[in-house]
Design a binder for these strands. Sequence first.
DNA 1: GTCTATAAGATGATAGAC
DNA 2: GTCTATCATCTTATAGAC
Lengths: 205, 205
Amino acid sequence: MHAALLTVRENGLAAASARTIAARAQANQALIFYHFHTVTELLEAASNAAVDDSVRQYRDAFSSVQSLPDLLTVGRQLHERERDNGNVALMAQLMAGAQHDPVLARATQYAMAAWTSEIGAVLGRVLTGSPVVDLIDIDGLAHVISAGFIGIELYDGVNTAGASRAMSTLEDLGQLLEVVNDLGPVATRAFRSKIRTIKRRPARS
Amino acid sequence: MHAALLTVRENGLAAASARTIAARAQANQALIFYHFHTVTELLEAASNAAVDDSVRQYRDAFSSVQSLPDLLTVGRQLHERERDNGNVALMAQLMAGAQHDPVLARATQYAMAAWTSEIGAVLGRVLTGSPVVDLIDIDGLAHVISAGFIGIELYDGVNTAGASRAMSTLEDLGQLLEVVNDLGPVATRAFRSKIRTIKRRPARS
DNA sequence: GTCTATAAGATGATAGAC
DNA sequence: GTCTATCATCTTATAGAC
């Protein structure tokens, strides 16, 4: 399972054949089919275990978050570590393969559900009572963040400078929420009333 | 070229072999190598042509955009059409493959540069003078939007409900910019001063 | 559980006839 | 430019010895 994840992280899903993975593990190719039936089921088992492990590692950091600036700090640390150890690239590869493979689809559903529920819980705790929740759906925001990280990671492999700029801007958007969150009572009232006029004329179709 | 794009869109990059593409075009497999040298170079040529075509189609709509609400409307229409015709899924597949293939990397660089420069130009026109540019880098925002669409499209193949929620929230974030943009003079001043205090304590490492 | 051997097929790419 | 035929290699997956 370790060799399977290493292969996808370093060489991509296309290179993750039974023979390549087995060679990396110094094991026999036939063992993969004996233990996991198919290569994709091996990837699923390995991904699920890795996700459980990563999420468990961040549970403490998440539960200590009490404010939006806290969350931005912890979120940045988490993303940097997960990106550096290749887990985001791994997820991106699996998700691309998942578009046409039901087993990989199940694996990525599991991973995304695990992360978005964690992120959503923290966001909910930090943003309750904030004027931004009048406009922004918390659960939707958790999905945007998770999916956005995947997109930016893929972009990073193609245009590193552009991706790092995108990451900075994503953090700036978090700071924008922070600014709105901390407006004084007068500005907050103006903000809320402006939201109402926009909601009366929704841009969504 | 048409058959190549259809294959990637409908069956994924893993299925885009010379034989599969040629069969779809009712052509001979060997012709691909005669005309394009390799399969990935065929994909590059096809993708570049498709991107040029799509961008040209939207140039008029983009140039008519004069306000942020305009942009959100045009942006939503553009994304819906590009998603429905499979161009976003195509880009996502190519970008995933681009992580470990220099030719596909070149193709996706071309595509992303074409889109982000268009989006960045409109954003710049619409947001100049707005208080949000004190905090948000326009070019970075264009990259976030492009990469974000890719991520959400991949997520859509795995969790349709979650992805549609993410898309709605992305639009709500656009509306948040609109709200901030349209605050009265008093609230705008409060907003700008709050940005300054946050920038003095930057969250970025 | 782990190995060898092998089936049965797909793949990129080329040589050479037309 | 287009075709057939082919090579060498890789693929998943299984049968059967140990």
